[in-house]
Amino acid sequence: MTNSVEMKASSQSLGWKFFNAFFGVVVIGIGTVNIFWGNDPGFGIFLIVLSSAYFPPIQALLKEKTGRTIPGLVKFLLGVFILWAALGVGELFDKVDMMIHGL
């Protein structure tokens, strides 16, 4: 019985790790668009730095060095902030349109 509980926990953990990494890659993409096709490359660099909070190797390194991890609620709120800033204030869709028409 313990084996099945451990397997379920590890598969959930693997799913969350995949989701975190996927969201981190999305944020890196948003940051890259802001660096090269926006008027605020500093904001793009800031987003890329924030995306590191979502990658499992960085999370493991943080836990190894400090003994602490970033709580899920903090990552959720950070993700909401990133999406709000990129889609609303950062005008991501306008920048993507500029990028497509520039090619």
Rank of each mutant, 00 (worst) to 15 (best):
L103C: 04
A21D: 01
F55W: 09
G42N: 12
K95Y: 15
F22I: 01
L14T: 14
N34H: 13
N34T: 06
D40V: 02
T2N: 11
G79D: 01
M99R: 10
S13Y: 00
G90R: 11
H101S: 15
V27R: 00
P57A: 07
I30G: 12
P71H: 06
M99Q: 02
V96S: 03
A86R: 03
N20H: 11
A9C: 01
L78A: 12
N20P: 03
V25G: 01
F93A: 07
P56C: 06
G90V: 11
S13L: 01
G79S: 10
K17Y: 08
G42Y: 09
I45Y: 03
M99Y: 03
W84N: 04
K65G: 01
P56L: 00
L87K: 08
S52E: 12
D40I: 02
I82N: 02
L92V: 12
T66M: 13
S11W: 04
I100G: 04
F93L: 13
V80H: 03
V25W: 03
L83W: 07
G38V: 06
L50H: 01
V89D: 13
V33W: 03
N39F: 06
G38K: 04
K17S: 14
S13N: 06
V74Y: 10
F81T: 11
G42C: 02
K8R: 14
A9Q: 00
L87C: 09
K95E: 15
W16T: 08
I100K: 01
G24H: 01
A85C: 00
K63F: 13
N3K: 12
F55R: 00
P56G: 00
G102L: 07
S4A: 13
W37Y: 12
P57L: 05
M99E: 05
